[in-house]
């Protein structure tokens, strides 16, 4: 019951907000009769005083330089981590390919003759197809050469050379190291 009597006054004291003249008067009267609230009021005032008087603590000189060094160390660590990751992925990929290759090569090692014959058949077939295609291409090119006059051929070669030069310049510019701000 005694606690209930302090409630609005305790809240007013702790909140520190501006009171209306009527509320201020009530609080003043209460403080004159209530030792607990008077003690609380003094304590709150002293706490405020203590905290407002406490200085802002400053770090040791050279804080920003130490931060820059830390950032550099962090970047180096990140770079190292990325390098390790790429290496790990490359080695892992190579190992997986090797494993797959081993699986594919295993039957060959057991019975190589049928596979060797199949390979020979594929090779000869490829040669035959290539020979037919080259003959057809030669016929078409011959026909085109006869259709286009020599002056037009010269113009085509000049245009082609120009495009090649343009491509070389563009590649050179693209591959130049860029300036990245640090």
């Amino acid at each position: 019951m005694a606690k209930l009597n302090h409630l609005p006054f305790e809240d007013w004291l702790i909140s520190g907000e501006t009171l209306s003249p009527d509320e201020a008067e009530q609080l003043h009267e209460h403080l004159q009769n209530c030792q607990a609230c008077t003690l609380l009021s003094v304590a709150l005032r002293e706490v405020d005083r203590e905290l407002y008087a406490a200085p802002v603590i400053t770090p040791a000189p050279g804080f920003a330089n130490r931060w820059m060094r830390r950032l550099e160390a962090e970047r180096r660590q990140l770079h190292r981590r990325q390098t390790f990751l790429v290496m790990f992925l490359s080695i892992g990929g190579a190992m997986s390919l090797l494993a797959l290759l081993s699986l594919a090569v295993f039957p060959v090692l057991r019975s190589p003759l049928p596979i060797f014959l199949a390979f020979l058949y594929e090779l000869t077939s490829s040669f035959t197809v290539a020979s037919v295609l080259s003959k057809a291409l030669a016929t078409v090119l011959k026909a085109i050469f006869e259709m286009i006059p020599a002056t037009q051929w010269a113009a085509i070669w000049v245009a082609f050379a120009g495009l090649c030069a343009l491509w070389i310049v563009a590649m050179h510019r693209l591959l130049l190291p860029r300036r990245i701000p640090v």
Partner: peptide, 12 residues
């Protein structure tokens, strides 16, 4: 509110 009350009690 709670913090100020707690600090006041500590001070008392």
């Amino acid at each position: 509110h709670r913090a100020r009350l707690s600090m006041a009690h500590e001070w008392m």
